[in-house]
């Protein structure tokens, strides 16, 4: 068995280190303080989130990963204002968040486009609610639709689009409100591998060009490392912060970096955090041999 010697994921090149230095000096966009969420179930109270504390800075790309059931989705729903925390605060630019609002855009895994509206009208939805005139909303919406490359489909209905296109519309719709934070809840989870890779590059491109802070939930380690400045790792039962990792991979990112030592080192570390090796060996599946002795594949 061969193994590659990987550097410590904490070792940062000088470029990366100075980038993080600069990032930490930027104003704080979103701050989470002592957040707790307890659900009441029939079996009694279940602690979904416990003592969550973190900050994101302006134009930061922060990913949240963790094993299933760690409360990632609950966390982002609380940030969006769709769930009310049991205790603790979410501060957006220093102001406590109360309920959902257009200052935090959200992209859901299930697209959630309004099927009765065309692509253009979907993107105009938030703009008209904010009180913009129809013509202003339309011209602004068209800019966002162009940004995600769907100008040709402005008058199509969501049912006529592929999954990737739908998610691009959802992103354009969220961005059209010019939110301060974009919350993304496993947005590419339902897409096939190829489309997902396209969408990741797309998202980085958009993020690079506009003033937006992104909080991105995923269970895909490659995705988290590839996209993020920092990765917040949660652990399950109860959902607690395990570690906040600074990704040592240089920017601008590019799919070739998937094989860089820094990338692999970070990924390996995440792997260890989320699937600790000891636990995997604890319960090997009892499998009885069902082929002839000597009929081996390995």
């Amino acid at each position: 068995m061969t193994s590659i010697d990987l550097p410590d994921y904490k070792r940062q090149s000088s470029d990366v280190a100075s980038r993080f230095e600069e990032l930490k000096n930027r104003p704080v966009k979103l701050e989470v303080k002592n957040l707790q969420k307890i659900f009441q179930s029939k079996q009694g109270p279940v602690q979904a989130l416990k003592d969550i504390n973190f900050k994101t800075h302006r134009r930061e790309f922060l990913s949240v990963i963790g094993p299933s059931g760690c409360g990632k989705s609950t966390l982002i729903r609380i940030l969006a204002g769709l769930e009310i925390p049991t205790s603790g605060d979410v501060l957006l630019e220093g102001t406590a968040v109360k309920g959902p609002g257009p200052d935090r855009g959200m992209v859901f895994q299930g697209y959630t486009l309004f099927p009765w509206l065309t692509v253009k009208k979907n993107v105009m939805f938030g703009l008209t609610i904010a009180g913009n005139s129809e013509t202003k909303a339309e011209s602004e919406a068209m800019q966002w639709i162009e940004l995600v490359g769907l100008k040709k489909f402005a008058d199509s209905y969501p049912s006529q689009l592929s999954g990737g296109m739908k998610q691009r519309v959802a992103i354009a719709r969220a961005l059209a409100n010019q939110p301060r934070v974009l919350l993304m809840d496993e947005p590419f989870g339902a897409l096939d591998a190829q489309t997902r890779a396209h969408m990741q590059s797309y998202l980085l491109e958009i993020w690079r060009n506009i003033d937006i802070t992104i909080i991105f939930i995923t269970h895909d380690l490659d995705e988290a490392v590839y996209l993020s400045d920092r990765v917040l790792v949660l652990k399950a039962n109860p959902g607690e912060v395990q570690e906040m990792i600074e990704v040592p991979v240089a920017r601008p990112r590019d799919p070739d970096q998937f094989l860089e030592p820094e990338f692999l080192a970070t990924k390996r570390h995440l792997e260890h955090l989320i699937h600790p090796p000891s636990k995997q060996q604890k319960s090997p599946m009892p499998i009885t041999r069902m082929t002839e002795v000597g009929d081996n594949v390995e």
Binding site: A80, G81, L82, G99, P100, G101, P102, R104, G105, M106, F108, G110, T112, F114, F125, G126, I129, A130, R173, A174, N177, L183
Partner: peptide
Amino acid sequence: LDKSLLEAALTLGAKPKS
């Protein structure tokens, strides 16, 4: 009706009444 459509509308700034 998919509840997430309502949630999406709320995050886009819709008020519960609308």
